[in-house]
Design a protein around this nucleic acid. Sequence first.
DNA 1: TTTCCAATTGAACAATTGTTCAGTTAAGTG
DNA 2: CACTTAACTGAACAATTGTTCAATTGGAAA
Lengths: 195, 195
Amino acid sequence: MARKQGSHSDITGPRILDTALRLIAQHGFSAVSMRQIASEVGVQAGALYNYTPDKQSLLFDMMREHMADLLGALQTVDLQGNAVSQLETFTRFHIRFHLPRPDQVFVSYMELRNLSPRNFSVIERMRRDYEDALEAILRQGEAEGVFAVTDTRVATRAIIAMLTGLSHWYRGDGRLDIAALETIYWDLVRKSVAV
Amino acid sequence: MARKQGSHSDITGPRILDTALRLIAQHGFSAVSMRQIASEVGVQAGALYNYTPDKQSLLFDMMREHMADLLGALQTVDLQGNAVSQLETFTRFHIRFHLPRPDQVFVSYMELRNLSPRNFSVIERMRRDYEDALEAILRQGEAEGVFAVTDTRVATRAIIAMLTGLSHWYRGDGRLDIAALETIYWDLVRKSVAV
DNA sequence: TTTCCAATTGAACAATTGTTCAGTTAAGTG
DNA sequence: CACTTAACTGAACAATTGTTCAATTGGAAA
């Protein structure tokens, strides 16, 4: 047997990335084998290499895609107006973007050390770009006199850590829905940097 | 060759745990082999099994030890007085305890999914105990009327995520020392839950 | 229907994995 | 000193790892 009925790269390609993402989020990059991924996709391990040059690229591709999606989505939100409303927009955007993507968030956080140095620096740069967007808001708020933080860079990371932490324990069937969580976190963020 | 000069379980035992901790923090549990650990300790792989029944126990032991240290240290701090000063004590304690232990923090966060279900529930319970200590402070502050949080449980996790996030990027040679960071974070935490 | 290429198999590769254990040597005890 | 036990070696085990590739088959275009 060789080519299977109904097989098509437009189907198999995305399925490989999806399956790899789910398995790596669940067990970790090194704990997941190419054969395990192939098995869940329904092909032999060798078939994966029509879609990725190696396992490392598989990890890198999903992390880069996630970060590109994040930065792209951030571009589309309207960050106008005063610093307070910008910070609210950013906070709600972060939660709304991350909560439906628990696996991507998990992998992008936990598997950084499994990236090759070259790939790591690419992802790190994208993360840095995202942080800079928030930092710009905080700086503007300080200029406006509506925010008071001792150290803008530290506050930036603190807020992002707080917001991303939500993704690590949120489950869709919990007692609080996304809208409620947005409000709770916005309340915490808003006050944390207030004058 | 068999037993080596100067060999002693009081030395080799801790060295195995230390080495395993460092390597696992660096590369991840599944990416580190027993032979790699043994090699850095300076023994053969078989010798590790005089100190641990298997690789899983190695991971579990270091995580349990870390959490036990954390809960033990928390017991020793004086959490008296009003809620605000208790929260400050907790915040500074958390930073002061975690910053000098980056590897333990990293492993205890990243490797939860590599614990067996039985071991996971043990660690999870200890984490829960730690969270409960902070939650109690927040509840007391609400009773005193000095804190205002929409949801105490969520605020607890948000604060811990924010504080632990610091451990993920802090490097001893940075521009800010521990005392400065304590102050910055205490400022953020204090305001985030303020009325 | 014939032709061509895209998609996949299945076997093979050398290297590495966690773990066990009989054998060997050093440390400690009397 | 003799003796016991603690500590470790080194080889072995079967299983699994990422990756390659000639062979094979289905889908699509002519």
